[in-house]
Design a protein around this nucleic acid. Structure first.
Lengths: 141, 141
DNA sequence: ACTTGCTCCTGTAGCCACTACAGGAACTAA
DNA sequence: TTAGTTCCTGTAGTGGCTACAGGAGCAAGT
């Protein structure tokens, strides 16, 4: 059994984050020592590491909770996992596309932007009327 | 002069967000009608639109505030803008790289994941000891 | 036995940039 | 006048943590 500090080291999850996961019911409450300290088994540490790796892959907590419940009941888990992973891949691809378009926009805006000029062409075009948009979009995640 | 609804339409900024920007001092407080309603001039609407466009480009509010103060005093603004834009471009590029690596990782993980299997190889490898990491990293933005 | 210094505990508040109410006041059109 | 719409303030919630404050427990050295 390991204290929270060791569990943090071994799982790569910050101590405060571990306590947060417990508060939120993302991982089960561990046992306690006589003095009231949390004690983690290797299995519980593996679970923490699993959550961190999923977070590193960009999965939101809600999906990770589904993953965790799928690992409990080992009943036809793989199909559902694959679907969730594919949806997540689609989101990642969409983000990459967005960022790439954004980069192009920013590049072309800042390219006219030379040191020494009094009026900045980038700020100018961002302030102008009807510049890169077709109407009032009003959509942001 | 326009009410907040028209200002929202014309700038593309949500009504609640406009009020939030005002509360936070990101845009100056507009005048009010006899009945206490906010009234926006075309210039103030242009400022809101500017903020939205910068947000669309991914700039954080803190940077946008710098931009706004630079547009007030038209003193050698362009050099500073260019630097901020380049730093932001670096961040965007870093994000794209991260997401691309993430996509590869997720693809290779989920590729072994076929429907019908009892134990999911993706969840399996995420749960295992020492799989894709060199030690205890502990670094997340 | 006592002290030093580390780890741990709970509880609360802050981060970013919004978004979503609730409960009421003020306009506008029929 | 009345119904419907827009606006007002104030507060709380979102996600996923992170950062305290103020105290208790514990291990090693003297």
């Amino acid at each position: 059994m390991f204290t929270i500090g060791k569990a943090s080291e071994q799982s790569g999850v910050n101590i405060e984050t571990i306590r947060y996961y417990e508060r939120e019911g993302i991982v089960p409450k561990p046992g306690r020592s006589a003095g009231g300290r949390r004690l983690y088994s290797p299995d519980e540490i593996a679970k923490l590491r699993f959550v961190r790796r999923c977070r590193d892959l960009g999965f939101p907590i809600s999906i990770i909770q589904t993953f965790l419940s799928l690992t409990e009941q080992d009943d036809r888990s793989c199909g559902e996992v694959k679907t969730l992973a594919e949806n997540h891949l689609d989101e990642i691809n969409a983000k990459i596309e967005n960022l790439t378009r954004l980069r192009e926009a920013l590049l072309s805006l800042s390219s006219n932007c030379d040191d020494g000029t009094a009026d900045c062409p980038m700020l100018d075009s961002l302030m102008k009327d009807g510049f890169g948009e077709s109407g009032s979009e009003q959509s942001r995640h």
